[in-house]
Design a protein around this nucleic acid. Sequence first.
RNA 1: GCCCGGGUGGUGGAAUGGUAGACACGCAGGACUUAAAAUCCUGUCUCAGCAAUGGGGUGAGGGUUCGAGUCCCUCCUCGGGCACCA
Length: 802
Amino acid sequence: MIPYYNPEKSEKKWRKVWEANKLYKTNLEDQKRPKYYNLVMFPYPSGDKLHIGHWYSYAPADSWGRYMRMKGFNVFQPIGFDSFGLPAENYAIKTGIHPAKTTKTNIAYMEKQLKAMGAGWDWDAEVVTNEPDYYKWTQWVFLQLYKNGLVYRKLSPVNWCPGCKTVLANEQAQDGLCERCDSEVTKKDLTQWFINIRSYAQKLLDYEGLDWPEKTRLMQENWIGRSEGSEIDFDIVGHDKKITVYTTRIDTLYGATYMVLAPEHELVEKITTIKNKKAVEDYMKKTRKATDIERSAEGREKTGVFTGAYVTNPLNGAQIPIWIADYVLVHYGTGAVMAVPAHDERDYAFAKKYKLPIKEVISPINYETKSNISKAAFCEDGKLINSGEFGGTDSAQARIDITRFLEKKGLAKLKVNYRLRDWLISRQRYWGAPIPIVYCPECGEVAVPEKDLPVKLPTDIEFQPKGDGKSPLNTSSSFVNTKCPKCKGPATRETDTMDTFVCSSWYFLRYPCSQLAKKPFEEKTLSHWLPVDMYIGGPEHACMHLLYARFIHKAMHDLGFVKAGEPFKRLVHQGMITKNGAKMSKSKGNVVSPDEFVKKYGSDVFRMYLMFMGPFTQGGDWNDKGITGIKRFVDKFWRVMTTEVEGERASSAIIHKTIKKVTEDIEAMHFNTAISSLMEMINAISDKVVSIDDKRMAVKLIAPLAPHLAEEIWAHLGGKKSVFEDSWPTYDPKQIVEDEITIAVQVNGKLRGTILVPNNSSKEKILAEVKSMENIQKHIAGGQIVKEIYVPGKIVNLVVKM
RNA sequence: GCCCGGGUGGUGGAAUGGUAGACACGCAGGACUUAAAAUCCUGUCUCAGCAAUGGGGUGAGGGUUCGAGUCCCUCCUCGGGCACCA
C-alpha cells in the first residue's frame, strides 16, 4: 500500500525537476513540430498580488497549453508583467515609497506565486514593461509611428480633477468622478499626444480568419461605430462661407427647419450677429464649465441659443436659423447637424422647447405605425411627402437620389463616419515610458534618434502633484534639460509619459524576441511565431487593450515588421470571479488570495476546483464549499492508480470513452465536464483491476489538469521521462461501441419505460419488443397507434390516438 | 433607450430537438472504529404511494414538433457593454 498522496512534497519535487530539465523552455528555432503560441494577458504587479481571478484564467490557460503540447505542438507559453501604471504612483504619493521599489517587491512576490502554480511558463522569455530594456522598445515603437505620421500633437481638453489638482487618465475618471477623491472631473485644455488610430478604423473592422467571441467583435464594432451617410453644404446667408453637416437621413432634408452647431464649432464666432453675441458667449462659457456628468446626465433638458445667422437649404432654398447647442458633439461628423424635428427625437425635443417649426416630410408606409407629429417624432424610414420632386419616393431610394442630385451641383457627397476617436496617449504622470521627443528653440519638435534610446526615467522626482497639471518629470532638471539631437543646442524634453496601454499593445511581439539586445524583434522570428494562436484574458479589455493591440500590430505589419495581419488568432475570455456578487477589489477589501488554498490542498486541487466550478467563460461567485470534492477525487485517483487490487478486471471501454469525452471537452474548453467525466471514470474502475496501459492512458488524461499529480503517478507507473513529453492518448472507436444499449420508450411523448436491446437490433425488432412491454401495453390499450418513431440508439415514441 | 449574455434541485452546475437534474457539495441513514477523523455503502427535484407506478416540474405566458431546458413570438428579471454619434 502506497502512502497517501502528499501534494506539498510532490508538487515541490516536480517543479524542481521541471526547472532542472528546462521542460518549459521553448526551442523557438524548432521547425519540426508545428508552433503554438499560447498567451495569457500579463498581470499588473499590484499590491493585491495574485488573486483568485488570475488563477481562474491562468490555470486553464496552462492546462490548454499542456494539452496542445501533448498533441504534438511546440508550445510557447510566456509570462511577464505590465508594470507601469497608476497604482504604484498613487501609492508613492501617499507613502513616498518609490514606484520602482513597490513594483520590484510586488513582482518578486507574484513570481513566487506564479511559480507555485506549477504552470509551464517559459521564464526565459519574461518581459517586464518598466525595465529600460523593454520601454526602450516601447519608445522605438512610438518613433516608428511618429515617423510614419501616425502620431501627432494637438491642443485638447483633458480630464482635470480640481481636488487632486492633477490631470487624470480616462480610466481614472470613471463615471465622471476622480477615482482617488471622488471630485467631479472637469475639462482643461492641454497640448497632448495622440495616436491616429482612426486612420485604421476600417481595417479594424475586418475580422477575417479570427476565431473571436461574437460578443467581443460586436463590442469593438460598436465602439468603432461605422456609419454611412452624406455630407451636405449649406450656404450661410450674407457670408461667402458654408457649413457642412453630416447626416444619415438626407431623405429628410426638406424637413430641416433649423441648424445646430456644437458650441465649440470654429464658425460660431464668425457668424454670430452682434445682437446675439452676448447670449452666445454666455452659453459657451456655461457649456465649458459643465462637467461630463452634467453634460451627459440622463434625460437632461436640451439647451441652446440662436446665433442670429441663417443658412440656405440647398434643396428648396428655404432660409433656416443657425443655433448652437451642446447636444451636438464637436468631435463627431462635422460638429454641425441639420435639425429635422419631425423625424429625430433630439431635434424634436429641442424644437418643442424653443418653438421652432416642425415639418413632416416622411410618412409611414405601414398604416399600423401611423405617426402623430404633434406628439412625437417619427424616426423610421417611410415615404417622402412635402418634398417637391422627391415626394412619393421611399426613404432608402430618396437618400441615393437626393445625394446624387446635390452631388451634381457639388453640394453633397456620400460619407462614411466612425465614432472611434484618436487615442490620447499623453499622461502627466511619472510611472510610465517617457515620450522620446525633444523641444528645441531652433529646430522645434525633434524625435530622439533611435540610437539614443532609451530615454530613461529619472529617479530624482517629486511625486506630490503641484497643481499645475504638469508631469512630475518636470521636477527633475537633469531630465528636462538636454541637447537638441539636431543642432546640439540647449533643448528640453517632453515630460509626459505614455499611456501604459502603449506598453501592453506590443508585448506579445517581444516575448519570442526578448533576448534580443539590439532590436525590439526580428522579422524572421515573428513570421514564424505570430499570430498568437490562443489569447486568454478578461472581456473588460474588448475596447481598450484588444483594440490598441490590433492597431499597433497592424501598423507594425504595414511597416513590414510582422507578416501576420492580426495579432490574436483565437481569443477566449474567462468569466469573472466575484465575492458575494461583487467584483473583487482592494478598496472593497474582498480580494481572496489563492495562497492559503494552495498551501492547504496543493496547486492541482485548487486549479481543478476553479475549473470544476463551472464553464470557463462563465465565471462565478467564489466560495470554497466544494473544494473537498476535488480533494477526495485526487486522493481516489492516486489510490486507484497506485494500488493493486484483486478481483474483476475493468474493461478498457470506460477508459476509451473517457479519452473521447475529455478530448472533446478540453477542445471546447469545457474543463468542468472534462473533470466530471474523469470522476465518472475513476468511480467506475475504483474497485476493479486496471491494466497498466489503461492506467497510463488515464494519467495522461488528467495530466493537463493536474500536472504534478500526473507526474508523480506517471513515474510510479514506470515512466522515465516527463508525462508531458509523451503524447495525448487516442481512443479506439471499436472499444467504445456498446454491446447493449438502453432505449427510452415514450407513448405520446411521455416516458413510459426503458428497454435494453442488443446494439444492432432492427427497428422492427425493437418496436415489437416495445409493444410487448407491460407498462406500454397499459398505455396504448384502447387506442390506435398512428405513428411509430424510432431514433436509432435513443428513443422510441408511439403516437396513440384514443 | 440600444446591443450582447444569463435565469434548471438546498448549493455549484450537466444535458448534438430525444430518459431533465450527469458530476460534485451539502444533508439524512448505515458500515468500519472504544470514539473521532478518514474511507466505504444507500438515499436525496416535488407531490401521492410500502412499492410498482402515476401527477407536476428548467423565470411567466403563448406557438412550432411525434417529442422543447434546447427552436420561434411576447413579457418579467439579473449581469455586461454602449449611450445626445445626427
